[in-house]
């Protein structure tokens, strides 16, 4: 994925001290591979939406670093993730597979999230601790606080991370949940993915402040603003927020700043409201390319390894697409399934 490569033979010199926030080399490669997988999934799903094979695609391109790093900073499989619709890279990092996702996109009976009922990109897994998302902006944030409240009541040291966009911070649910969590010292991390747009509305028309983390001040919790395209910056911020939450000191607002490279969804004519030149400029800061360059430069990733990752990722996406494409549809007689419990 990098344009200019170090020679494949170059290995990391042991004396070279690179600060990787304590992330071991194998994990760095895992993070990188997940970011590549997310990117490849987004590209594929986008094509499927435009060819009409699936109804809608939402891409997280530009968010890969912050999503994957934030999940790796937690205890995966133990902590809870309360996502919004743009969190596919985070969901992959939590352990969902391309096949799980493709079955949902193709609305197949076997879709493990909801049997083809839920909106595309609203991934969930009871076993992986991923809550099903909401189409209504910011409404998941109080749910995240509630899940964390339950952990606290049960005296578990689990934390919950809830994700949302910059636009979501305008909703009442965001503010009520923030205040609630701070007052009750709830072990939750509010992770704002600031991508500078809410559909067509640029951030400066969404709020009168520049640094979204200032919103934490009024509620009495720490607010930190980090470069959302920097794996390590996000990793450190979330790790610290998680430690704080586990110590019983309550919530943190982490704002990861990035840029939404793709349109809002596959149905969004973004030429209406942003200059293509702006996107071209932002592509230069693509977090996947940036991380790959870092890994390569510091000898964590050779050209062969990168090629192997690309091949694995492509094969996984192909396999998932083919599998889901030919899987059976749900049957109309089942439409009422899952409406009530016993």
């Amino acid at each position: 994925m990098v344009a200019t490569r170090q020679p494949a033979t170059r290995r990391r010199r042991s004396e070279e001290m690179v600060d990787t926030a304590g992330i071991p080399p194998e994990t760095l490669l895992e993070i990188y591979e997940t970011m590549c997988l997310s990117k490849a999934m987004d590209d594929r799903v986008w094509v499927l939406a435009h060819s009409g094979e699936i109804a809608l695609a939402v891409s997280c391109h530009g968010h890969e670093a912050l999503q994957v790093a934030s999940i790796y900073a937690l205890r995966r499989g133990y902590d809870w993730m309360v996502p919004y619709y743009r969190d596919s890279a985070a969901a992959l990092a939590m352990g969902l597979t391309p096949r799980d996702m493709m079955l949902a996109f193709f609305a197949r009976r076997e879709d493990s999230f909801s049997g083809a009922r839920q909106f595309p990109n609203h991934f969930s897994s009871r076993t992986l601790n991923i809550l099903s998302g909401s189409s209504d902006i910011a409404t998941q944030i109080p749910h995240g606080v509630g899940i964390a409240l339950a952990s606290k009541m049960r005296k578990e040291d689990r934390v919950t991370i809830t994700y949302f966009g910059d636009g979501a911070t305008s909703e009442g649910d965001f503010h009520e949940a923030m205040n609630f969590a701070a007052v009750l010292k709830i072990p939750v991390i509010f992770l704002c993915e600031n991508n500078e747009y809410a559909i067509s509305v640029p951030r400066r028309k969404q709020m009168a402040i520049d640094d979204i983390s200032n919103k934490a001040v009024g509620y009495g919790m720490p607010g930190v603003s980090v470069d959302g395209r920097d794996v390590f910056a996000v990793y450190r911020a979330v790790q610290e927020a998680a430690a704080r939450a586990r110590r019983g000191e309550g919530p943190t607002l982490v704002v990861a700043n990035t840029y939404r490279i793709d349109p809002h969804t596959s149905n969004d004519p973004d030429r209406f409201y942003r200059d293509p030149k702006e996107i071209t400029e932002q592509r230069k800061h693509d977090p996947v390319l940036r991380f790959s360059a870092f890994l390569n430069q510091h000898g964590f990733l050779t050209e062969e390894q990168d090629a192997a990752i690309a091949a694995r990722v492509a094969a996984q996406v192909d396999e998932a697409t083919d599998y889901a494409r030919s899987a059976p549809q749900p049957v109309p007689e089942d439409a009422a399934l899952y409406l009530y419990g016993n």
Binding site: A107, A116, Q118, P330, P332, A335, L339
Partner: peptide, 12 residues
Amino acid sequence: GIEVPMPYSKPL
């Protein structure tokens, strides 16, 4: 409408 939340799948 049948009394369920609207499902995503086209046949449903």
